[in-house]
């Protein structure tokens, strides 16, 4: 017996999220935003490790955020000690839509 997930095997989060429903809002109503200049001096990039759905990625050394896959758990706001994450709920009725929960 050993872990079936080998260390270099990637987790395909997009594929997993295919099972989850959303009602996407348009970009101007994104419920979370970041300030990349603050991220530049961030000592830990914990948002990348904590977010359960990969909303944070480093692209050429610049932190980028996409709000669409967000499941509204709030973890990024908690771990972002430098204060780059501006977090709120999506507008009423928008965002993740659990059918099981």
């Amino acid at each position: 017996m050993s872990l079936n997930l080998t260390p270099d095997e990637k987790v395909d989060i997009k594929a997993l999220l295919g099972a989850t429903s959303y009602n996407f809002d348009d970009e101007e109503h994104a419920h979370i935003t970041i300030t990349p200049e603050i991220c530049e001096t961030c000592p830990h990039h914990m948002c990348m490790y904590a977010c359960p759905v990969n909303c944070f990625t480093l692209v050429d050394g610049v932190m980028t955020f996409q709000y669409e896959d967000c499941v509204e758990c709030g973890t990024c706001d908690i771990v972002c000690t430098p204060g780059s994450v501006e977090w709120t709920h999506p507008r009423g009725g928008f965002g993740v839509k659990y059918k099981e929960g």
């Binding site: 997930l5 987790v11 997993l16 359960p52 759905v53 499941v71 973890t75 659990y98 059918k99």
Partner: peptide, 29 residues
């Protein structure tokens, strides 16, 4: 990464034996 720990759990032999052949119906946090 947090979701990797979830996947390690899901594929752990003690869990895999129960859910083998199952289909993911929802992912959330």
């Amino acid at each position: 990464v947090s979701h990797r720990i979830m996947e390690e759990f899901r594929t752990h032999p003690s869990i895999a034996k129960y859910i083998e052949g199952g289909k993911l119906a929802e992912y959330g946090a």
